[in-house]
Computed example of a mutant assay.
Amino acid sequence: MIGDPGQDSPSIGIVLVNWNGWRDTVECLESLLRCPHRSWFAVCVDNGSADGSTERIEAYCAGDLPATSPFFEYDPSTKPVAFMRVSGRDALSRARTGLPVPDRSVVVIENEANLGFAEANNQGTRFAMAARSPEFCLFLNNDTVVDPDLLSEFVQAAARHPGTGFFGPKTYYYDHGGRRDVINFAGGSLDLVRGRTLHIGQNEVDLGQHDREREVDWVEGSCLLARSRLLDEIGLLDPFYFAYFEENDLILRGRRAGAGAVYVPRARLWHKVSASSRRSPTKLYYLTRNRLWFVRRFATRNELARFYAWFFGYRLWFLLGVYLVRYLSRPSAGALLRGARDGLGPLPDRPAT
Rank of each mutant, 00 (worst) to 15 (best):
C28A: 14
Y60W: 15
W40Y: 10
P66C: 08
A50H: 10
G52S: 06
G63S: 11
D51T: 05
D46L: 04
E55P: 07
D24T: 07
A42M: 04
S49C: 10
I57T: 00
H37W: 15
P66R: 02
L65T: 08
C28E: 01
V45G: 03
E58W: 07
A67V: 13
D64Y: 14
G48C: 07
R56H: 13
S39K: 09
T68K: 13
E30N: 04
S53Y: 08
V26S: 00
C44K: 05
R34Q: 10
D46V: 03
T54S: 14
R38A: 12
G21R: 14
T25A: 15
P36M: 01
W22L: 00
C28Q: 00
V26W: 00
H37F: 14
Y60Q: 06
E30S: 14
A42D: 02
S39R: 13
C44N: 10
L32C: 01
S39D: 15
C35W: 14
H37K: 12
D24W: 13
W22Y: 09
A50Q: 05
T25D: 09
F41D: 00
T25Y: 14
V45K: 05
L32W: 05
S31A: 08
T68C: 14
S49Q: 07
C44A: 07
A67I: 05
E55Y: 10
S53W: 13
L29M: 09
S53I: 04
V43N: 04
V45M: 02
D64R: 13
A50D: 11
S31G: 05
H37I: 06
T54I: 11
R38H: 12
A62T: 06
A62G: 03
V43G: 04
E27F: 06
D51M: 14
G63P: 10
A50C: 09
G52Y: 05
S49E: 08
D51P: 08
T25N: 06
E27S: 09
C28L: 02
S39A: 15
D51H: 11
D51I: 08
R34F: 12
W40P: 01
C44P: 02
S39P: 15
T54R: 07
G52C: 03
L33S: 01
R56G: 01
P66G: 10
V26H: 00
T54Y: 04
R56S: 10
D64I: 04
L33D: 05
T68N: 11
R56L: 12
E27R: 10
Y60G: 03
T54D: 15
D64A: 15
A42Y: 01
D24P: 11
L65R: 06
L29W: 07
G48A: 06
R56M: 01
S49R: 10
T54K: 06
S39Q: 15
